[in-house]
Design a protein around this nucleic acid. Structure first.
Lengths: 249, 249
DNA sequence: AAAATAGTGTCTGTCAGACAATATGTC
DNA sequence: GACATATTGTCTGACAGACACTATTTT
């Protein structure tokens, strides 16, 4: 036993999460946390934390939690949302490990991304460090040289790059993975809600007529079903039917 | 200075690579290494090794190599192939970090996958531990209960699962990412070579006629070009034209 | 000519994009 | 009725799957 003893330096491993939702203003928002300590104190960063590795890299050691579990835990801690209970979409995105991305030493970050419904997103501020959490439009973290009227947020570490990769993944996936739109929508939604989710994620307008055909196919295939009521009061115009995703799917 | 000192246990981080090629027998092959030490001594595993993290997680420490660099280095060490020089496709796949996947302690593996051309694959045995390297059909690592005639290979660690994820990624990507087929093909190839690569990767026959239409579109768009010669001797039948991918693309 | 492989043509169904038309609600 | 929004319909072009057909080589 114990003959194995590893004396080489080891990195720290964190799990960070890019949590997306759709704001009431119709924008793609991401959850940011204001840093309370150096480095980057006072700047905004993606939520994240060290993976519980038990007793670490040692023969016979306890080995702690899985990466998926760490991500789910992080989500719970920051938002009070549970992957199971609240139908949150959570998936591994990419692992970032460039040297010098963290001045405290070599840190490798396994990044996940999550999608939470516009109906449950407000519950986030119930979390631990409510005051430090902020839903910010993804747009506000882009580097736009000209448009000076909009609020600009400069992210800590390499998180601007991380966010860009995450947003691109969601954009590229929404067309063929129905779980994306499903996770972002509330339990009941109109066809227009559905279309607008696609518009917001992809950033380009979707023809409502063509979208309707696509939606009809989904109904025929049983991928969505009518709930048998119409949407509540609107400013004007004909109210739309309400739909939902079937339980088992 | 030095006020920061992290006393918590840390995991080890490795980079493993799933290296695919297409064998002369027309199968999807993966490069395996026979393990020389415990655990799993004598069994086959994916090539991989620890990431150089410099002085590790310590304030002011040197931080070593990037993950991409570690993967490229690993590829060079095991196969004598260079990502730049030899047109090898190399991309991060997924990070595996389940507890107890390695009995030596907590190990988190950032897995990459690589695609090498059928023409350069034979050069692999020039590598360091030539005797320990083996090109094995991916099929031979699947758990098939019935077909007892074929050679079965049981992989070390959770590498059977890793390999499955990698193969699925390639399968799902070959249809929309032209770099996949390009990396697997030699510099000059026939339309049938191209079709067979798709058949081998996807595991289902591709109609040569429909494939031809698709190929013609690629020619019209300049994504492939005729080389102006015909393939060498075959057993019988009409010889086919040779094509290549244009330089800049 | 027969065999074998290379490559083309045709038909059909699905689906996206553009745009016109109709339906149903509020004020 | 005027207006706003919801929903359906039509035309077109791109493309995949199935399958019949033609072309060019070796034996």
């Amino acid at each position: 036993m114990g003959k194995h003893s590893y004396k080489y330096p080891l990195p720290a491993v964190t799990v960070d999460i890019v949590i997306f939702t759709i704001s009431r203003r119709g924008e793609l928002d991401v959850l940011l946390i204001e840093r309370g300590d150096a480095p980057f104190k006072g700047q905004y960063a993606l939520p994240g934390g060290f993976v519980d590795v038990g007793e670490g890299y040692r023969e016979g050691a306890t080995q702690g939690e899985s990466l998926d579990a760490a991500a789910a835990r992080e989500l719970r801690e920051e938002t009070d949302l549970d992957v199971e209970r609240d139908d949150v979409f959570l998936e591994q995105l990419y692992t970032f490990g460039t040297p010098d991305r963290d001045p405290r030493g070599r840190v490798i970050s396994v990044v996940y991304y999550a999608l939470v419904g516009m109906d449950v997103a407000p519950r986030v501020r119930a979390g631990d460090d409510a005051a430090r959490a902020l839903w910010a439009p993804v747009r506000s973290t882009d580097a736009l040289d000209d448009d000076s009227e909009a609020l600009q947020i400069v992210l800590a570490f390499d998180h601007a790059q991380v966010l860009r990769v995450a947003a691109e993944r969601v954009r590229g996936k929404i067309d063929y993975d129905p779980r994306i739109a499903r996770a972002l929508l509330p339990a009941e939604f109109t066809m227009n809600d559905f279309r607008r989710v696609h518009e917001i994620v992809k950033g380009i307008p979707q023809d409502s007529s063509n979208f309707s055909k696509r939606f009809r196919r989904m109904i025929e295939d049983g991928r969505v079903e009518e709930v048998g009521a119409v949407a509540g009061m609107q400013d004007r115009g004909r109210p739309s039917a309400l739909y939902r995703f079937p339980e088992a799917s």
